[in-house]
């Protein structure tokens, strides 16, 4: 016998429920033991008092750092899982103004000079597009050793989509790492060098796939990175 067919609404409802459960497990059930580990290690430190062996002190510090890192990973996972559910408001957006505003919001220690050209104004998921640019510009400035980190942002208009290109003068990505940069929790740099999680580009790709576009990367180490992505003109 065939199972009764579900309507789209029922499927959507079931998916929504499944997602809620997943988000709950991630945010609550995984964090509780992590909190306990962090608390217990803090107490061991407190109870040992001031005169700890330097090695013990160092290990306790590492333990605390790792629990904090894991918390950030959990938050990243949660954000990744929310891509298809949040920020769904459609608004008119000037990409040029958006890019300027994002670049202006970086802290003093991370200034980025942006060069926008031929950027459109159109109606789309404004917040999602902003997250994509925020992430690409953030990468341009984080993985950059130039005195003046710079990014060039341009767009080409196609029949149904815009092709955006974000080029930076950063350190670049080695060829063997390029296919993996969009994987969640993948980082090129060793984790003690950059406190990055490997979540940003994974979220970026998920957003672009959600709207029906695609993203690719080209890079020559030492000469910067080009990210190219398509974004539909109408949602």
């Amino acid at each position: 016998m065939m199972p009764p067919e579900q309507t789209c609404e029922q499927q959507l409802e079931a998916l929504r429920k499944e997602f809620e459960e997943f988000a709950y497990i991630v945010s609550h059930d995984l964090k509780a033991p992590l909190r306990a580990i962090n608390n217990l290690s803090a107490w061991i430190g407190e109870d040992l008092g001031e005169n700890q062996e330097p090695e013990v002190q160092n290990n306790l510090q590492l333990l605390q750092n790792r629990t904090q890192r894991m918390e950030r990973m959990i938050n990243g996972l949660l954000e990744y899982s929310r891509v298809s559910r949040q920020d769904l408001e459609v608004q008119e957006v000037s990409v040029e103004a958006m890019v300027q505003r994002l670049a202006g919001a970086f802290p003093q220690s991370q200034t980025l000079e942006v060069h926008p050209s031929h950027l459109p104004t159109f109606k789309t998921y404004a917040k999602k597009l902003e997250t994509v640019f925020q992430q690409l510009l953030q990468n341009a400035v984080t993985f950059n050793e130039q005195e003046t980190p710079e990014a060039w942002i341009e767009a080409q208009e196609q029949a149904d989509a815009f092709v955006f290109k974000v080029r930076d003068n950063g350190i670049g990505i080695p060829a063997e790492a390029q296919p993996k940069v969009f994987n969640i929790f993948f980082t090129v740099q060793p984790k003690d060098r950059h406190e990055t999680l490997g979540v940003g580009l994974a979220i970026t790709r998920k957003i672009i796939q959600f709207v029906g576009g695609s993203i690719s990367v080209q890079s020559t180490p030492g000469h910067g990175t080009d990210f190219m992505f398509t974004w539909p003109k109408t949602i």
Binding site: R35, W43, Q68, E71
Partner: peptide, 9 residues
């Protein structure tokens, strides 16, 4: 919301 870090708590 309970923080992860004991010092924040």
């Amino acid at each position: 919301v309970k923080p992860i870090q004991y010092t924040s708590f």
